[in-house]
């Protein structure tokens, strides 16, 4: 780990810019957006309004096109993605466990570089306490699925950068001149802060919920009644992977994939109109149980890492933490 001032962070961006298009939180007229940087100095420390999902699974993308009697598929390249939070990186690992054999996803994943910003301040909407906490540590429960290349912390105007992979160590090596080793006292302060934040983020109990989440719980209809079906909870969720594909005539025929939402009626509608999840509450149940029961039972992981983006993006104020608390109550 090395420690430095703000120039260490800018230096990191500069080094990555030599090999990648760098995606990081930057300001757009009063909003912080996770987007490609044009200049290293543009990176900010605030949490951006969008999740990193679109840089691996875009909102809408062309899978292939058929032109002049032949198929052509794009060969996408990944990005160096900075400033995403541990919860979001863990969610991307969930995403990879599902999408990992998709050639476009895989091609992006394999050529991406991830630098996670650990949380030295609690965030208002997250609940990662039971789901990994505010840093991606060496003994992180998600460690068996992968690790970010770098992790950086900010505390009292200082930036701490740590490498978690070989590739990360390489990049860190190039930054030696911009920082120094961390003192034991500094590390202790950092550990203290992280554990305080962790304590704060234990806002709702998640572990064990798969045993309690009933099929016929009244929570589903209560929250479904309030859902206006905007899809935002799915779209903003870094681990929601469901998509729709369609063929379009754009001069050439193109097959397009776009984010979909399990809360929409058409998502599960079949030919001739039959629909196993016709009622809104059936679809709400699917969303909740998929994340907290089915996925857990098949993979051992919850398909939710407590980032809180869904509740931030919900126009009706549906709060997933509240949903989970309901499920605990009989």
């Amino acid at each position: 780990m090395i420690v430095g001032g703000r120039e260490l962070l800018d230096g990191l961006v500069k080094v990555l810019m030599e090999r990648w298009t760098v995606v990081a939180p930057r300001e757009v007229e009063g909003n912080v957006v996770l987007a490609p940087l044009e200049d290293a100095g543009e990176i900010v420390l605030d949490r951006p309004l969008n999740s990193p999902k679109e840089y691996l699974l875009p909102q809408e993308e062309i899978l292939f096109e058929y032109r002049d009697g032949g198929f052509k598929a794009p060969e996408p390249r990944g990005y160096a993605i900075l400033g995403i939070r541990p919860c979001e990186f863990r969610a991307l690992l969930m995403l990879k466990s599902v999408m990992g054999e998709d050639p476009l996803f895989l091609s992006r994943w394999n050529s991406s570089f991830f630098a996670v910003q650990a949380c030295t301040e609690p965030c208002p909407s997250g609940f990662c306490g039971d789901l990994g906490g505010p840093e991606f540590s060496g003994i992180d429960p998600y460690r068996p699925l992968g690790a970010p290349d770098l992790q950086y912390y900010t505390l009292d105007g200082r930036v701490f950068v740590d490498a978690l992979t070989e590739r990360g160590k390489e990049v860190l090596g190039a930054l030696r001149d911009l920082g120094e080793g961390a003192t034991e006292e500094e590390l202790e302060r950092l550990r203290m802060r992280i554990s305080e934040v962790w304590e704060d983020m234990k806002r709702v109990r998640v572990v064990g919920i798969e045993e309690r989440a009933r099929w016929d719980h009244p929570a589903y209809s209560y929250f479904a009644e309030r859902c206006i079906q905007c899809g935002a909870c799915n779209f903003e969720c870094p681990s929601c992977f469901c998509f729709d594909i369609r063929d379009e005539d754009e001069g050439a025929w193109v097959r397009v994939r776009e984010w979909d939402s399990c809360l929409l009626e058409g998502f599960s509608k079949m030919a001739l109109g039959a629909n196993p999840r016709k009622r809104e509450e059936d679809r709400m149940r699917q969303r909740i149980l998929h994340k907290f029961k089915y996925f857990k039972e098949t993979t051992g992981f919850y398909m939710c890492t407590g980032c809180g983006r869904c509740l931030e993006a919900c126009p009706s104020g549906i709060d997933l933490r509240e949903v989970i608390s309901w499920l605990w109550r009989e």
């Binding site: 909003n31 309004l49 079906q229 905007c230 935002a232 126009p315």
Partner: peptide, 17 residues
């Protein structure tokens, strides 16, 4: 991509479908 604007007083980080 489309993003709801967080700082907008009317929609405050949300959009409909």
């Amino acid at each position: 991509s489309v993003y709801p604007e967080r700082s907008h007083p009317s929609n405050a980080g949300t959009l409909c479908i």
